[in-house]
């Protein structure tokens, strides 16, 4: 069994801890979203939506709790899309050549980088959940400790697969590009539609049909659905809409993300095997 990808992973994590500004920014950014956007929006949304009463017997979720799942998803998306940038630096500083000229299989480079990006997402998600509790996010309502444990594992599973998909995508782009600016441009172009044409901040039920159709194919929508299912349960009411998830829905979303990550894996593998860096 070849474990060299752990070597790349090890180096990536050293870099993560050592670039202090990057470390603090990546940990602080989601907290700031929760603290400012979350609190500001929830005070408004709660006012609007209090006019719509939840159907009898359905558990009602406040906006801050509703969007916390969206912030987890958003942070994972941003971190993962940027995750490949370290490959771009490796390429520009010539460090990629050391790896490419070694006997280590090339897929290990992208897997090492991607797994470290996944780890960073797990750390961020943990911070958001802990910080959210302080701000008044009510995840896991009425759950038993065992249910909470299962839910946390479920959330990490969704976050893990989703981030892996986008990290591999980001690695592919980084290997094909020459400059960090190029990557920056592509990421900016992608994040807006992915983030806003999703259920991260608001229900998609009220979208125009085209956006609604698009949002169904958006991996972010499936990530958010998965997180909400595990954090809030299979039947709740939020922002004027009722959410029900069947087990099949959730498995379907997970399968969609697995399929997405698999496609991205093969794309990245092809790119790495053909890459010529001198």
């Amino acid at each position: 069994m070849a474990w060299e990808f752990l070597t790349v992973y090890w180096r990536e994590m050293i870099r993560f801890v050592r670039f202090r500004t990057q470390l603090f920014a990546s940990l602080l950014q989601p907290a700031l979203w929760m603290a400012f956007f979350g609190v500001a929006m929830s005070s408004n949304f709660n006012r609007f939506t209090s006019a719509i009463p939840p159907p009898p017997g359905v558990f009602s979720v406040d906006y801050l709790t509703f969007m916390a799942a969206g912030v987890i998803a958003m942070t994972t998306l941003f971190t993962s899309l940027f995750g490949g940038i370290s490959l771009l630096f490796d390429k520009n500083w010539g460090l990629m050549r050391e790896m490419l000229a070694s006997p280590m299989p090339r897929t290990h480079i992208m897997m090492g980088v991607s797994l470290s990006g996944m780890t960073k997402s797990f750390i961020q998600v943990s911070i958001i959940m802990a910080f959210g509790l302080l701000l008044g996010v009510r995840f896991f309502p009425g759950f038993s400790p065992v249910q909470i444990a299962v839910s946390v594992i479920g959330i990490y599973a969704f976050v893990g697969v989703f981030s892996l998909g986008f990290l591999l995508f980001s690695s592919t782009i980084s290997m094909r590009l020459e400059t960090p600016e190029g990557l920056q441009g592509i990421i900016t172009l992608l994040t807006l539609p992915i983030f806003f044409v999703s259920n991260a901040l608001y229900p998609i039920q009220a979208f125009p049909p085209i956006l609604q159709a698009l949002s169904i194919y958006n991996p972010l929508t499936h990530l958010v659905s998965g997180i909400r299912y595990f954090a809030l349960g299979s039947d709740f009411f939020a922002v004027g809409a009722r959410y029900t998830y069947t087990t099949a829905d959730v498995l379907g979303s997970f399968a969609y993300l697995v399929a997405f990550a698999t496609v991205m894996y093969f794309l990245a593998r092809r790119t790495f095997q053909r890459a010529v860096v001198t």
Partner: peptide, 15 residues
């Protein structure tokens, strides 16, 4: 079977 010393400094500055 080979070892390489590249033309420029190929070192990770932060390691």
């Amino acid at each position: 079977s080979i070892g390489i010393v590249f033309q420029e400094d190929v070192l990770d500055r932060d390691l």
